[in-house]
Write a protein that binds this DNA or RNA. Sequence first.
DNA 1: CGTCGCGTTGATCACGGTCAATATAGGTGG
DNA 2: CCACCTATATTGACCGTGATCAACGCGACG
Lengths: 236, 236
Amino acid sequence: MTPNACQSCAIRHKALCRELLPEELVHLNSIARKRTIHAGQQIASPVDTLVSYANIISGVVKLSKVLPDGRAQIVGLQFVSDFLGRPFKKKCTYFAQAATEVELCTFSKNGFEKMILKYPGMKHRLLDHTLDELDAAQEWMLLLGRKTAREKLASFLCMVGKRGVNQSCSATTTLNFTRFDLPLTRADIADFLGLTTETVSRQISKFKTEGLIRLEGSRTIVVPNMRMLETATTDA
Amino acid sequence: MTPNACQSCAIRHKALCRELLPEELVHLNSIARKRTIHAGQQIASPVDTLVSYANIISGVVKLSKVLPDGRAQIVGLQFVSDFLGRPFKKKCTYFAQAATEVELCTFSKNGFEKMILKYPGMKHRLLDHTLDELDAAQEWMLLLGRKTAREKLASFLCMVGKRGVNQSCSATTTLNFTRFDLPLTRADIADFLGLTTETVSRQISKFKTEGLIRLEGSRTIVVPNMRMLETATTDA
DNA sequence: CGTCGCGTTGATCACGGTCAATATAGGTGG
DNA sequence: CCACCTATATTGACCGTGATCAACGCGACG
């Protein structure tokens, strides 16, 4: 990449690189390479060998596991500034696929691993990040195991509302009013929540008739009062 | 603890301390303290402040999350030699409770954090361990979101069979024949699998009549052919 | 011997899945 | 620019898995 490109990067102050020292940033810059991935395209899978790590500059990446008979479960959604890759492993255990158009900042596997070993701060941030992911995974286990379809949908909309805002230029939020785009199809949402597309569709329609949300097209959600939606994330 | 107690520790070669240098082991020994916890007793919760980390010397610890109305989900099971604690956080996000009688090797929070910062190897192993936990959590998300009750039970029995053997003295395994004790009540198993106790009980009975397993008392499971049980973990 | 916690079994119900038809939107070529 | 086509989304009718409610068995312990 061009010298010091990292300096002006859009996610310079959010991603792993957030607290890098100038020296480290120069090093990182030297192994970084931008790459664009189209929606639906696969980024990694359990069958192929990992050759690079990446930060997400824009877009959303879904990580999913699949049963032999085709049943699928999304086990992670990665947003802007999130990190992709499992440090020091040659294989990953899931499929990584672009849910939307995605811009990645990739690092060669070897180069990045050398950096991790050289700068303790990097390893520390990687640990922090992994622990955050574990927290998120555990929260999702609670959702998958114990929440009703209605609660699952409300939780999902709240999550995307919170994470999607501040990132998507199309998202707006004032007080409790929020507008944002869904980065997933109904089928993807179903695979994320452990439901079917039909149930997802029905619950969205129900929220609509109840006035909890409005739709603009099928992908843009308007939430007049986020508090109300949060109420629906637990209990009836 | 007595000088060099770590040297003769039962989990010396399995836990985080596995690859510690002699110097590091002495340091660790100086901040370690053994503690016994009775079945059912609480070890940590989201409301109280964390004051120590721990390795499990014996027994099983369950980590669970609870919804306001009481619905609970176990988000992690920790076995012999597993690590407890969320590095550098003052709070944890779940309840940690002894599922059986548990022996812990605890480390003061401050002392252990200093060690993490001092020895890069510790941090590395902590990262590895956290990544393994993340993998396990994702595997469980697939189970919770997409597997049937039958598949959930089979998966659970296989997991306990694999992890419980080699640790519990009462567990035996020759070829495909395996005998082991369940460390959880039916209610705990239900909370782990996102089911009810009744469904857990019914599925166990079904496996029994099918000859997939035998029961000795209600806690000891005999699996004549582990392969057969593994078949039941996916597909009908 | 009675109580309490845990486990099993049965009868019924309802949430969400399945199968099927229809609607809508986005994209392509005439 | 519109007609057409395919993806994606919605809606309806029906069904089945697992939840719920309830009774009972069993063993540990005072």
